[in-house]
Lab assay of single mutants.
Amino acid sequence: NKFNKEMRNAYWEIALLPNLNNQQKRAFIRSLYDDPSQSANLLAEAKKLNDAQA
Rank of each mutant, 00 (worst) to 15 (best):
P18W: 04
L17D: 01
Q53Y: 10
F3V: 09
R8M: 14
R26L: 05
S31L: 11
P36W: 12
S39G: 12
F3K: 04
I14W: 00
N9I: 11
L16Y: 15
D34T: 09
A54P: 10
A10R: 05
N4T: 06
D51L: 14
A15R: 15
A54R: 01
A44S: 14
A52L: 13
N1T: 08
A46Y: 03
K5F: 03
F3Q: 07
W12I: 11
P18G: 07
K2D: 15
A52F: 11
K2S: 12
N22T: 11
E45V: 10
R30G: 07
I29D: 00
A15N: 13
N22P: 09
S31Q: 12
I29H: 11
S39P: 03
Q23K: 07
K25T: 03
Q53M: 13
R8Q: 14
Q24D: 04
N22Q: 13
F3A: 05
I29V: 15
N50V: 01
R30N: 08
M7Q: 13
N4H: 10
L17A: 06
Q53H: 07
N50G: 03
D51I: 13
L49P: 00
D51S: 09
M7I: 12
A44E: 09
P18S: 12
L42M: 07
A54M: 13
R30D: 05
K2M: 08
A40V: 11
N21I: 07
Q23L: 09
Q24L: 07
Y33D: 02
N4L: 08
N9K: 15
A27L: 04
A40P: 13
N50E: 02
N22W: 03
A44I: 12
F28Y: 08
I14E: 00
I14N: 00
A15G: 11
Q23M: 08
S37G: 11
K25I: 08
L49G: 01
S31P: 02
I29Q: 15
F3H: 14
K25E: 00
N4S: 04
A52M: 14
N41Y: 12
S37I: 07
P18R: 09
E45Y: 10
E45N: 10
N21D: 15
A46H: 00
L32S: 01
F3D: 13
S31G: 09
E13R: 10
M7N: 04
N1M: 03
N21P: 04
R30Q: 10
N50C: 02
D34R: 11
S37V: 09
S39H: 15
N21Y: 10
A46S: 06
R8W: 08
Y33N: 04
K48Q: 03
I29E: 02
I29T: 06
D35P: 01
R26Q: 04
A10H: 05
K47T: 05
F28V: 03
F3G: 08
W12M: 14
A54Q: 15
K2H: 10
N1K: 04
L42D: 01
A40K: 11
I14A: 00
K48N: 15
K5V: 05
D51Q: 13
Q38V: 06
S39C: 02
D51C: 04
K48C: 02
S39K: 14
I14L: 05
N19Q: 05
A46E: 00
Y33T: 05
L43F: 04
N1A: 04
P36I: 06
K25V: 05
A46R: 00
K2A: 14
Q24W: 02
L43I: 14
D34E: 11
E13W: 08
A52N: 09
L43V: 15
L16C: 04
D34L: 13
N9F: 06
N22Y: 14
L16H: 12
L42A: 07
P36K: 04
A40N: 10
S37C: 03
A10T: 12
M7V: 11
S37A: 07
Y11G: 06
K25D: 00
L17N: 02
S37Y: 09
N1S: 03
L42I: 12
E45P: 00
R30F: 10
N21V: 04
A44H: 13
A27Y: 12
P18H: 09
L32K: 00
I14Q: 00
S31W: 11
D51W: 12
Y11N: 03
N50W: 01
N22C: 03
N1R: 02
E45L: 14
K2L: 14
K47C: 02
M7W: 11
D34M: 14
K5A: 12
N4K: 06
L42Y: 07
Q53K: 03
I29N: 02
S39V: 09
E13Y: 12
Q24E: 10
Q24T: 05
K2R: 10
E6A: 04
A52K: 10
Y11D: 01
E6T: 05
N50L: 01
E6I: 04
L17V: 00
A10F: 14
L32I: 05
F28G: 00
Q38D: 12
N41A: 14
Q24N: 03
K25G: 00
W12D: 08
I14R: 00
N1F: 02
N19H: 11
A27D: 12
L49Y: 06
L42R: 08
N1H: 04
R26T: 06
E13H: 13
R8V: 07
D51Y: 11
F3C: 05
R8C: 08
K47R: 13
N41K: 13
N19V: 03
L43P: 01
F28I: 07
I14S: 00
N22V: 13
A27P: 02
A44T: 12
K48F: 09
A52W: 13
Q24A: 07
A40S: 12
R30S: 13
I29C: 02
R30E: 06
D34W: 09
A10V: 10
R26D: 08
K25H: 02
A27W: 15
A40G: 07
K5D: 12
N22K: 13
F3T: 07
A54V: 15
R8F: 06
D34H: 05
N9P: 04
E6N: 05
E13F: 15
N22F: 15
W12R: 15
N19G: 08
W12G: 06
L20F: 01
F28Q: 01
N19T: 05
N1Q: 08
A10C: 02
A15Q: 15
L17G: 00
E45A: 07
E13P: 01
N19I: 02
N21W: 07
D34A: 12
S31M: 10
A46G: 02
E13V: 03
L42E: 01
K5N: 10
R26Y: 08
S31R: 14
R8T: 11
A52G: 10
S31H: 14
Q38N: 12
A15L: 12
E45W: 10
S31Y: 10
Q24F: 02
K47H: 11
K25W: 02
L16D: 08
R30P: 00
L20T: 00
A40M: 14
R8E: 15
L16V: 10
Q24K: 02
L43M: 09
Q23C: 03
N50Y: 01
M7H: 05
M7K: 02
M7A: 10
E6M: 04
P36Y: 06
R30C: 03
F28E: 00
K2Y: 06
L43K: 08
D34K: 07
A40D: 09
L16P: 01
R8I: 05
Q23N: 10
N22S: 15
L17R: 01
A15C: 03
D35W: 09
Y11P: 01
P36T: 04
W12V: 12
P36M: 05
K48M: 12
I29R: 04
Q38P: 02
D35H: 14
D35C: 03
Q38M: 15
E45K: 11
S39D: 02
W12N: 15
A40L: 11
Y11M: 13
E6R: 01
P36H: 04
P36A: 08
D34N: 09
D34C: 04
